[in-house]
Design a protein around this nucleic acid. Structure first.
Lengths: 141, 141
DNA sequence: AAGACTTTGATAATTGTTATCAGCTAATAT
DNA sequence: ATATTAGCTGATAACAATTATCAAAGTCTT
């Protein structure tokens, strides 16, 4: 057992009960790249056949809340569109998902130094400044 | 009529029929910030009470396909999580929504020069390089 | 080991989105 | 202008993702 002590202390720090389900989900996540809840469910089900979708969802949210996981990109629950008039970036509250525009010139240029996968055609570079707005920050206190 | 000639030529360029619904949706979008399909629906319904959800969805997708609109952030349809081990950024195919990791050091530093809204606490700055992967680029040709 | 509190799993309910298809509309050719 | 054709719309049903509910079971103190 190498990872178990780690997760145990993570739970203690966060005041979470250390359950078998959470442990297995945590371990599964370590080997997955950008899984959706359903992908996590499928993987964990191999080890805990009785696991429920609800448990996976709840666990993922709990982990995100306690900083054990991050959302790849704030999940608004719905599609959001934007009339592409002027290029701009976004400030997003991870609590309430509110979006605030940031002018392009308020941001230094973003330089990509690495190499792209073969054939990848860049359309645009979007910068998301993620954090908590005033109200959500207060609420979390 | 100021905006109508604009939209008419946009449609012509894209080979789209100029319909009343599309015109009204287009106009509505000009005054909305990061609307969800449902918010667009609500606004357009005031002018076209018979409009259907399906039409709004189809129109938004059509607009995105033809570059008239952009998705705020690629909508994977599901939540995606990420074990926050090392900070890194993402390359996202807007076609198939595939996500590829980009090491943090392949990207020059991102500097924010403007001022944040009062009380906003930044948690992290995420850079999304959006574009088309090789397969999707080929398919679109 | 007992009690208090948290978590789980089953299920139903919601919400967001897409498919289908008949009837209507816009673009083009006449 | 009118007819033809291809494309678009609206209603509805189907589907997918997520959340709510709540009794049973597990975890963490003491």
């Amino acid at each position: 057992m190498e990872t178990k002590p780690d997760f145990r202390s993570l739970c203690q720090q966060s005041g979470l009960a250390l359950t078998h389900q959470r442990q297995v989900i945590f371990d599964a996540l370590a080997n997955m790249h950008h899984p959706s809840p359903d992908e996590v469910y499928a993987k964990v089900k191999q080890l805990i056949p009785s696991i429920s979708h609800a448990t996976v969802y709840k666990t993922l949210h709990t982990f995100v809340e306690h900083g054990i996981l991050r959302e790849l990109s704030p999940h608004h629950g719905t599609l959001r569109v934007d009339m592409g008039t002027e290029p701009h970036h976004h400030l997003i509250c991870t609590g309430c998902k509110k979006v605030i525009d940031v002018e392009s010139d308020e941001l230094g240029p973003v330089k990509f130094l690495g190499k792209l996968p073969k054939g990848f055609q860049v359309e645009r570079v979007a910068v998301e400044i993620q954090g908590l707005c005033e109200q959500c920050a207060r609420r979390k206190k």
